[in-house]
Design a protein around this nucleic acid. Structure first.
Lengths: 343, 343
DNA sequence: TTGTAGGCGTTATCAG
DNA sequence: CTGATAACGCCTACAA
C-alpha cells in the first residue's frame, strides 16, 4: 500500500504539502503542485479513506433504505440518487427494509453512531414511523416519496393527493359516477393521500361516498391481490364502471380480473393506475396512470440531503415535484349499455 | 460521540479490556465482561468504524456492480447478496455501471486502493472484460451471472448453454423445425451461451442452421427491440413456427409483434423466453421460460466471496446452480394449417 | 510557502 | 487476566 508519506518522499516535499495539494486547499506553489501530482500519478496513490474519514469525522457514505428493488418504482429512483452522490464524492450504501416493518430504528441509529454514514435517504417510511422525529437536527435524513406527516424532517415527493384527485376527476368527467378504488392495506402515506384525493374528487363533483366501493389489496401491491380486490368490486350488486388503483400493478391485476369476468377494458370498465412503470405500455390496452419524475425525485433527494449535511441555512423541508396524468387506453367515456362503441 | 475510553472509564477497566470484550477474543473474566457490557449498554456505545477499519486494514464493505436495477433479474439477485452480507457483518455498496461500458477499471481499482471495499460482486461483466484477470489474487472478486471465460476469477451462474439447449430441444420435440432466435447485440456471455445452446439443440436434432433465423435486439433487451426483431423474423419468406428469446422482455415484445400481425400465440407461433421475471405469469398466455434461482445466486455469490476474502484454501472457482425449464402457455405442439387446434 | 508534530478512535503487542 | 502504549494513514494547527 502506498501512502501519503511515500508520495511526499517521491516528490521531495512534506506530507502536509501533499495533503494540501490533494485537498485543493491552495497556498502551494504551482511548481510544487506539479511535483506532487506527478508523484501521485506515478505511484498510483489513492488516499486511504478509513484514515481520512477518521480524521475528518465523516464517512462519505449515504445510506439508502428501501423495502425491495423488485418494485420498479424504487429501481427508477435509485439511479438518480446514485448519479448525484457519485458526483458529490459519496458512495451509496443500500439497506433492505423488508416490507413489513419498514424501518428499524436501532439499525439506523447504529449505522450513524458507528460513523458508517453521513446521511440517509429513506424510500419507504410508513406514515406512523414517528420515531424519526427524534433525530431531527441530529442525523441528516431526507424522506423520498413516502414520508411522515407533521414532523420536522425534509421530504420530497409528488403531490399524491392532488394527482389522485385529478385522475378521478377525469373519470368523472368521462361520465363515471360509480367509481371504485383499489388501495392497499399498507401504512404508506401515499396510499392514504391517493385515497384522500379520490374523496376530494367525489366531493367536488357532489358524488356521495360509498364504502363498498373501496377495496384493499395486499401491502406489497401484488398482482394477485389486485385481481382479487377487483373481483370483489365487480361482483357488487351495483358494480363500478371505473376503478382507480393506487398502483399500476394492482391495475394490471384489475384488468386481468375484468378479462376473466368477460369485461372489456375500457369499454365495459375503465381502469386507471398510478406510477407509470414500464409495463403500462407493454400490452394493450395501454394504461392510464400518473407518472412521477422518478429519476428527478432521486436526484433532488440527494441534492437536498447534501444541503442538510452541509447545514446550508436555506435548505428546504418540503418539496413537491410535478406529476403528470397520462391518459391512455384503459379509460374511456362511460357507455350505457355494454359494448356501446366497441370497435 | 462516546468512545471506547468512556466505556473503559465507566466500567473501571482499561480500553484494552473493552476492546477484547467487544471483539470476543476471550481471556477476560466473566464478571469483567459483564461490567464492560453493562457500560456499553448504558452509554449506547458503538465502535467507530473508520477507526477500527483503519487499524484492521479492512472496510467491511462489499461492492456490488450492476448496470441497472430496472432489470428485475438484478433486483432479485440483490436481496440474496444483501441478506448474507449483513449477517456476515458487511455493508453493501452499490455502483451503477451504465449498460454500455459495463465496468470501469479505474473505478474499481480506486475503490479497492482507497480501502473502500474488501470485495466485489459483479453482476454484469462483458465477456471481453479480460482486464479483470489482472486482479486475480489481488482483489477479492466474484462474478455473478455474467463472467469472463477462461480467466482465473471465481464465477457463479446457471448453465445458460445447457438451459437454452433444453428449451430449444423441447420446441423441436413439439414438432418445430424452423426455430428462430432473438438474441441481443450485447457482450454478455449469457447471450453467447444461450445462442450456443440453441445451436447445440439444432445440431443434435440434425437441423441445419439458418442465419436468417437469428435476429438481434438491443443491448438492454428492450421490449420494443424485441418487437422489432420478431417482426423481422416473421416477415421472412419462410417464417419460423417458434421463436426462442434470450430474455423474457424480448419474448413479451415478440408476443406483441405476433399479435399485431394477427398471429396467435401459441397456436400460430410458439415463443419462449428466459429468466422467468414476474410478468411471465401476469398475462395470458403465461410464458414458457427458464427460471434461474436468483436469490440463491446472490446468496451463494456473497458466501463464495467471503471464502475468498478469508483466503479459504478450498474456495470454489466455478459454480453452476440448477436452472429450471418452465413450460407454460406460449409454446405448443406445432400445427400444420394455422388455427388447427385453437379452442 | 512549507514543514513538524499531535491526534482522530481502535486494535494489538508487550509487560506485569 | 489486565493495563499501558505504539501503531494504522491522514489532516491541520502552529511554527518557521
Amino acid at each position: 500500500m502506498v501512502k501519503i508519506e511515500d508520495v511526499a518522499r517521491a516528490a521531495g516535499v512534506s506530507v502536509a504539502t501533499v495533503s494540501r495539494v490533494l485537498n485543493e486547499q491552495g497556498g502551494v506553489l504551482p511548481q510544487t503542485q506539479d511535483k506532487v501530482r506527478k508523484a501521485v500519478e506515478e505511484l498510483h496513490y489513492e488516499p486511504n479513506l478509513s484514515a481520512r474519514n477518521l480524521r475528518k469525522n465523516e464517512s462519505r457514505i449515504i445510506l439508502i433504505l428501501a423495502p425491495n428493488f423488485s418494485n420498479p418504482y424504487y429501481s427508477k429512483v435509485l439511479p438518480g440518487i446514485c448519479d448525484v452522490s457519485r458526483n458529490l464524492g459519496y458512495s451509496t450504501l443500500i439497506y433492505n427494509t423488508y416490507d413489513s416493518n419498514a424501518l428499524d430504528e436501532s439499525l439506523v441509529v447504529s449505522l450513524f453512531e458507528k460513523n458508517r454514514a453521513d446521511g440517509m435517504i429513506t424510500l419507504a417510511v410508513n406514515r406512523d414511523d414517528r420515531w424519526l422525529a427524534k433525530y431531527t437536527g441530529k442525523y441528516s435524513i431526507v424522506q423520498c416519496s413516502e414520508y411522515v406527516e407533521d414532523i420536522e424532517l425534509p421530504h420530497i415527493s409528488v403531490d399524491n393527493r392532488l394527482a389522485a384527485r385529478e385522475l378521478v376527476s377525469h373519470l368523472i368527467a368521462q361520465g363515471h359516477s360509480r367509481i371504485g378504488i383499489i388501495t392497499s392495506a399498507n401504512r404508506y402515506l401515499s396510499s392514504t393521500n391517493r385515497l384522500r384525493g379520490y374523496f376530494d374528487a367525489l366531493e367536488e363533483a357532489g358524488l356521495g361516498e360509498d364504502e363498498t366501493l373501496i377495496a384493499y389489496a395486499s401491502a406489497d401491491y401484488s398482482f394477485v391481490s389486485g385481481k382479487q380486490a377487483a373481483r370483489e368490486l365487480l361482483s357488487l350488486p351495483e358494480p363500478p364502471s371505473a376503478i382507480f388503483c393506487v398502483s399500476d400493478i394492482l391495475a394490471l391485476g384489475a384488468i386481468a380480473a375484468a378479462g376473466k369476468l368477460g369485461l372489456q377494458v375500457p369499454w365495459d370498465l375503465s381502469i386507471a393506475g398510478f406510477d407509470d412503470v414500464d409495463y403500462t405500455t407493454m400490452f394493450h390496452p395501454y394504461m392510464t396512470t400518473v407518472a412521477a419524475p422518478c429519476y428527478e425525485l432521486g436526484r433532488r433527494s440527494m441534492l437536498l440531503l447534501y444541503d442538510h449535511i452541509l447545514q446550508k441555512p436555506g435548505a428546504q423541508q418540503e418539496v413537491y415535484l410535478p406529476h403528470q396524468v397520462v391518459l391512455r387506453e384503459t379509460t374511456a367515456q362511460r357507455t350505457q349499455g355494454r359494448m356501446a362503441d366497441k370497435p
